[in-house]
């Protein structure tokens, strides 16, 4: 399905948005991914993907209350849409389907 295609980083973002549920905004997402995957993520990369996913309709967003730790500014909180869930599921399913089709023999390289 062409329309729901997800990039690797986008998929990661989408997943993290789900994980963080009500606290999913750029800085938190970046930190979460850094923590989980160990790779260093810049916040601008997260911004870029978030806005793109929102454009695609996979994410929805609203503004929170202002917070003092952000200099009195509001943050944009993201949440997964139904379309986003479908894209995630399809992508996961595709992976699993392919993974399951790998014959056991392909992993038998130690034997030879």
């Amino acid at each position: 399905m062409k329309g729901t295609h997800l990039g690797e980083f986008e998929e990661l973002i989408l997943l993290t948005v789900g994980v963080l549920y009500d606290e999913a905004y750029a800085v938190a997402i970046a930190k979460e991914i850094e923590e989980q995957s160990g790779r260093s993520i810049n916040v601008s990369a997260v911004h870029k993907s978030l806005y793109r996913l929102e454009e695609k309709g996979m994410l929805d967003s609203r503004l929170s209350d202002p917070e003092s730790k952000r200099g009195g500014k509001r943050k944009r909180l993201f949440s997964i849409t139904a379309y986003g869930k479908r894209a995630l599921d399809e992508s996961m399913e595709l992976r699993m389907r392919l993974r399951n089709r790998i014959p056991n023999i392909a992993f038998k390289w130690q034997m030879s």
């Binding site: 905004y25 750029a26 800085v27 916040v43 911004h47 503004l63 917070e67 730790k69 952000r70 200099g71 500014k73 509001r74 943050k75 944009r76």
Partner: peptide
């Protein structure tokens, strides 16, 4: 501006 700079400020502090 608000949301983006909010993120940057948060990180900064």
């Amino acid at each position: 501006y608000e949301e983006l700079h909010g993120d940057l400020e948060e990180l900064y502090y």
